[in-house]
Design a protein around this nucleic acid. Structure first.
Length: 335
DNA sequence: CTATGACCTGTACC
DNA sequence: AGGTACAGGTCAT
């Protein structure tokens, strides 16, 4: 992940203790100062959002479904918008196991080497121009991307060009600036101008990449939840209003599924400003642990305790404690 | 405008 | 063993 300066990448080792909601982390290599690291995790784990507060004061009082669920275990992460865009292009009609492999494949084949640790080589996620110049559609197909190869190449090329046209160097910065003087509908309209990006992928970018906490990406599972648990069904009048509203947004009008967009709006109304987080909680309960939801043992667990002795590549070591599920952050040196 | 299919690939099941 | 269905959608007809 990127820590501090955008050009600097660091590999970071994380662990969360069983009993306490504390997160410990150690950065490998010279990543800069501790404050940058702490600040990075504040943002990445969205420690400004308290799920406990949302459960107790917003969701449970209005929605019985949350009463028996736990405010721990699920978080919406603040991922890089560009990574989010490509990752979710890969997600279409696909399973999580393969999506993960595809994202890793993009890094190892087209990204830049960061460091090697414990026998694993780590690469950066390629930028749009790196992808546009280093990858080809047939190359991606050979790597197993299937029909998404075309979407990825075309999206990378278009975003690289969009950046040049606007004089912005960073993918993340470009996508973030879209939000500055535009509302959600305009941002979604722009995101859907990329091939392979429909309303669901665009909404995932809005929620996770652009921190629009109220956006609920409606996929088949959320659609099922909405109908089964909330009796949300198509309302002809509301859908007609929606369509009229999107007359000024041609791409949205073309790509939108009015029924699913209606579901999204109803869930936003029900769950409020952090509806996207509520969706995350219910989604994980719905599909958590099914067909390849994890990377089936590919995640390597290192031995935290052997960190000090075995790795000479760790020139700087930081351990902090971060309390999840709370608004404030606690910091303490372990050693 | 809404409704169907096709679409790559890996894998979990018959 | 070999076939089939399915997976966090999107696009084209």
């Amino acid at each position: 992940m990127k820590i501090g300066r955008q050009e600097d990448y660091s590999v970071v080792i994380l662990r969360q203790k069983e009993d306490k909601g504390l997160l410990e982390y150690a950065a490998v290599g010279d990543h800069g100062d501790q404050d940058a690291l702490k600040s990075h995790f504040m943002k990445y784990f969205r420690l400004d959002v308290s799920l406990k507060h949302l459960f107790d004061n917003v969701w449970i009082p209005n929605d019985k479904m949350f009463a028996k669920l736990s405010p721990q275990g699920i978080r919406i992460l603040a991922q890089e918008p560009w990574e989010t865009l490509i990752s979710f292009i890969c997600s279409s009609n696909n399973n999580i196991s393969r999506i993960t492999k595809m994202c890793n494949s993009l890094c190892s084949n087209f990204g830049n080497l960061i460091t090697k640790l414990d026998g694993v080589t780590y690469y950066s996620f390629p930028t749009s121009e790196e992808l546009a110049t280093r990858a080809t559609e047939t190359g991606l197909r050979d790597l197993g991307f299937g029909y998404r190869a075309k979407y990825i190449i075309e999206t990378a090329r278009k975003l690289a060009k969009d950046k040049v046209d606007s004089g912005i160097a960073s993918d993340t910065e470009y996508l973030q600036k879209l939000c500055e003087d535009a509302d959600y509908e305009d941002v979604r309209e722009h995101l859907m101008s990329y091939n392979g990006v429909g309303p669901k992928v665009a909404d995932c970018v809005c929620l996770m990449g652009l921190h629009m906490d109220g956006i609920v990406p409606v996929d088949v599972h959320v659609s099922r939840i909405a109908k089964r648990d909330y009796q949300i069904s198509a309302n002809k009048n509301r859908i007609k209003e929606l369509r009229a509203k999107y007359n000024v947004l041609p791409i949205t009008r073309k790509k939108i599924n009015p029924e699913l967009d209606y579901i999204r709006l109803m869930l936003l109304e029900k769950w409020g400003s952090h509806a996207g987080w509520a969706q995350g909680v219910l989604f994980s309960k719905e599909v958590g642990g099914t067909s390849g939801s994890t990377t089936s043992g590919e995640i390597k667990k290192r031995k935290w305790d052997s960190l000090e002795e075995t790795e000479q590549t760790i020139t700087k070591q930081v351990k902090l404690k971060v309390e999840l599920s709370e608004i404030h952050i606690k910091e303490a040196k372990i050693d």
